[in-house]
């Protein structure tokens, strides 16, 4: 690839990212709802159960804080990716796809755009961390890194699914049969220990998000089940596989 060619591809990646960022800035209601929902989980659900329960000597509300962060990454990322179904329906993507920019660059621009949205949302949620006494603020950078890798994986997954879907009807199916199970089986709301029934333990351990939740919980609360290197490796491999899969499906999309 010539230097000029590379430069044009980089400009293309930037163009797609720039577009996504503009959209993010304009759709304020989307940002607000993506912040309010996790806060409801933390304060309405977490405070309610936290009144009588604590896990590993941590108040329940604080205990699920890392899990709810991961949840907002999960929802934000997958739905960002799935949004291309809508873009295709409106033919917004058509004009982009005929440009002399490779599909891989367009895909990369989209992934970066999605990650930017999600990480900005997470940063807003981190602003509330002072309300959770057990959270160690020095762990935030590491948690952010883990959530970024998770976001790359999940945006790619959303784009992969979005490339295959023909209509918006598939949204509901993916939401019920993929996104919610991934969330409930991630240990976001309960500890993954021997008290869990065996079948549930197995499913939780197969879910790559479990390792993201555990990693973030380790960074913020110093409570974790798996060693750090296991958590990091699993989500990194997850991200690589999803990025590869997504870029292939996106390139085949017409």
């Amino acid at each position: 690839m010539g230097e000029r060619r590379l430069q044009k591809e980089l400009m293309g990646i930037y163009a797609v990212w720039w577009r996504e960022f503009k959209v993010f800035q304009r759709e304020k209601s989307r940002i607000i709802s993506s912040i309010v929902q996790p806060l409801m989980w933390l304060f309405l659900f977490g405070s309610g159960i936290g009144a009588s329960i604590s896990v590993s000597d941590v108040n329940y509300r604080d205990y699920i804080y890392p899990g709810v962060l991961t949840m907002s990454v999960l929802f934000g990322s997958v739905f960002f990716g799935l949004y291309i179904v809508w873009d295709r329906k409106l033919d917004v993507l058509k004009a982009v796809l005929v440009a002399p920019v490779s599909r891989l660059s367009i895909f990369l621009g989209k992934v970066l755009g999605g990650c930017t949205d999600v990480i900005l949302q997470v940063l807003i949620l981190f602003c509330f961390s002072f309300l959770f006494p057990s959270v160690n603020p020095w762990g935030i950078p590491l948690a952010l890194l883990l959530l970024l890798i998770t976001s790359i994986a999940l945006v790619s997954m959303g784009l992969a699914l979005g490339s295959m879907l023909e209509s918006l009807e598939g949204f509901q199916v993916i939401s019920s049969f993929l996104v919610f199970p991934l969330f409930f089986l991630s240990g976001a709301l309960f500890p993954v220990d021997d008290k869990l029934p065996v079948w549930l333990q197995g499913m939780v351990k197969l879910n790559p998000l479990t390792y993201a939740v555990d990693g973030v919980r380790g960074a913020l609360l110093n409570v974790q089940i798996f060693p750090f290197y296991v958590n990091l490796s699993v989500i990194t491999i997850f991200a690589i596989v999803m990025f590869g899969l997504g870029s292939v499906l996106f390139s085949r999309m017409k």
């Binding site: 430069q7 044009k8 400009m11 293309g12 930037y14 163009a15 797609v16 720039w18 577009r19 004009a95 982009v96 440009a99 002399p100 920019v101």
Partner: peptide, 9 residues
Amino acid sequence: LELHARLYG
């Protein structure tokens, strides 16, 4: 137009 200009280098 800016988006298009960038996409076309």
